[in-house]
Amino acid sequence: MDMANQARIKETAEKYGNENVVVVIGAAEPESAGLTAETVMVGDPTMAGPLTNVALKLKVFHIFELKDLIDPAVYDEQLSMMEMVLDVDALCEEMENIRKECGC
């Protein structure tokens, strides 16, 4: 996750409280989705950005995990094409694993 986004997430969490912030990821690759999730839960693993050693423990999901919460018409217009393109199962599995690993 780039430094600017890390800074924005940190600011948002400070402003609204960690328990009131949910991070929704749209990453295409399981590895990058996992890294992003890890960053907002236990801190930046690359030790380069504002979230280094900052464990926000935020709730984090991939957008495909939230399909049931999305208006079907909006989902069809915005996400149905990418659902065909990406490995949705691998993305969701990675998210579940990383949440477990981070204890969130």
């Binding site: 690759e29 590895e31 990058s32 890294l35 094409m81």
Partner: peptide, 20 residues
């Protein structure tokens, strides 16, 4: 680097549009 196969992702997206 976790950024995937960029051209392949694009081809799949164009193909998925053809499916739609």
């Amino acid at each position: 680097a976790g950024a995937g196969d960029v051209p392949m992702a694009n081809y799949k997206m164009i193909g998925a549009m053809a499916v739609k």
